[in-house]
């Protein structure tokens, strides 16, 4: 057999290797020439016609060429300049996700609310969640017999009564921070935002025995109802959006006079009234001008200074914003990670 046949195959293979565009093509060349039923193996089957000596010589040559082609293919594959076949890098394979954690919605609300008030000078403070009756009720102008002070509405701690400060209570509101803040600063101006856990003896779809409130307090000279309106409108714009505004309705609280309920216009109809909101307005929470007895309890002369305060539920305020459509507020405290994982 003509050894030229072998060399032709070799040249042909090398030419193909040289012009191959990607490794897939090279692998195909390897199969065509070096595979079990490849071109070179085909030649082995024709060796029977040769003499023993010729067979040896031919075999050596064939193996030589086989190695050359193999080396060439390998070196081409190893060569970085070779373009990678598109499918060999599949960017759609699943990612390696970093672990994803979640902040509780109440934390998100607290962050956002305190940032909004910080911009108009209300500094965040922290006061006890378990406090004396004095700060939670007595100093807030709540008469001894007020229903909030009885054991049906407020949690009390099983401990002896202090002769000066009274019983120990789980604060049913953040308003205990009012007189404490007046005592800390002694003279106005004072602008605080007190955010804390509160407790009331109530459990149903819209109440949890523990909840969070944010309490705003501003005391200064010449503070009027108009200023309270200014602050609630500012908050409504910043927290709920520029088309939102508030209105005040008469209400009653012991520690404010006058007292209000603050409504915000509905996000859908902006106050005209629609199917979702009925009257056009949704209730945000309570507010009022600080009662002179509260100022006095905090050592501030109500003939010189006046102020306003508001204390709203974090849960409610946030749920109204995010349109979470939680039909049961207790979900926030069930800590089902399938729920929390959505935040």
């Amino acid at each position: 057999m003509d050894s030229q046949v072998i060399y032709n195959i070799k040249n042909e293979a090398l030419a193909l290797i040289g012009s191959a565009k990607d490794s897939r093509e090279l692998e195909n060349i390897r199969i065509t020439y070096l595979g079990r039923s490849g071109k070179l193996n085909g030649l082995f089957s024709k060796m029977s016609a040769l003499t023993k000596e010729e067979k040896i010589q031919f075999g050596i040559k064939l193996n030589e060429i086989k190695n050359i082609i193999d080396t060439e293919i390998n070196s081409r594959i190893a060569n970085a300049s070779l373009s990678v076949p598109e499918i060999a890098f599949d960017p759609t394979l699943p990612s390696i996700l970093p672990p994803l954690g979640h902040l509780h919605p109440i934390t998100k609300a607290i962050e956002e609310i305190s940032n909004i008030f910080e911009k108009i000078g209300f500094i965040r403070v922290r006061y006890p969640e378990i406090d004396w009756d004095w700060y939670a009720f007595e100093a807030l102008n709540m008469p001894v017999n007020h229903p909030a002070r009885d054991e049906w509405e407020t949690f009390f701690i099983d401990s002896p009564k202090n002769s000066k400060w009274g019983r120990v209570v789980l604060t049913p509101h953040t308003s205990n921070g009012q007189v404490r803040e007046m005592e800390r600063l002694k003279t106005p101006p004072m602008r605080m935002i007190n955010i804390a856990k509160c407790y009331r003896r109530q459990v149903d779809i819209s109440h949890t025995p523990m909840f969070h409130q944010f309490e705003g307090l501003l005391v200064d000279k010449n503070i009027t109802i108009s200023h309270l309106k200014g602050v609630t409108d500012y908050f409504a714009n910043a927290f709920y959006g520029p088309t939102r505004k508030t209105r005040l309705r008469p209400f009653h609280f012991q520690f404010t006079e006058p007292s209000f309920e603050v409504d915000i216009n509905c996000s859908i109809c902006l106050g005209k009234g629609c199917k979702t909101c009925k009257s056009g307005w949704l209730e945000l929470g309570g507010a009022g001008m600080v009662h002179p007895n509260v100022l006095r309890a905090g050592g501030i002369d109500p003939e010189i200074y006046s102020g306003f305060a508001f204390g709203w539920g974090i849960e409610r305020t946030y749920m109204m914003k995010s349109a979470l459509k939680l039909d049961d507020i207790r979900t926030l405290y069930n800590n089902d990670l399938r729920f929390l994982g959505q935040f």
């Binding site: 910080e118 108009i120 000078g121 500094i123 101006p189 602008r191 200064d220 200023h227 200014g230 409108d233």
Partner: peptide, 9 residues
């Protein structure tokens, strides 16, 4: 509706 002016405490 008036936002009260003043410095933080």
């Amino acid at each position: 509706s008036v936002v009260p002016l003043g410095l933080p405490t």
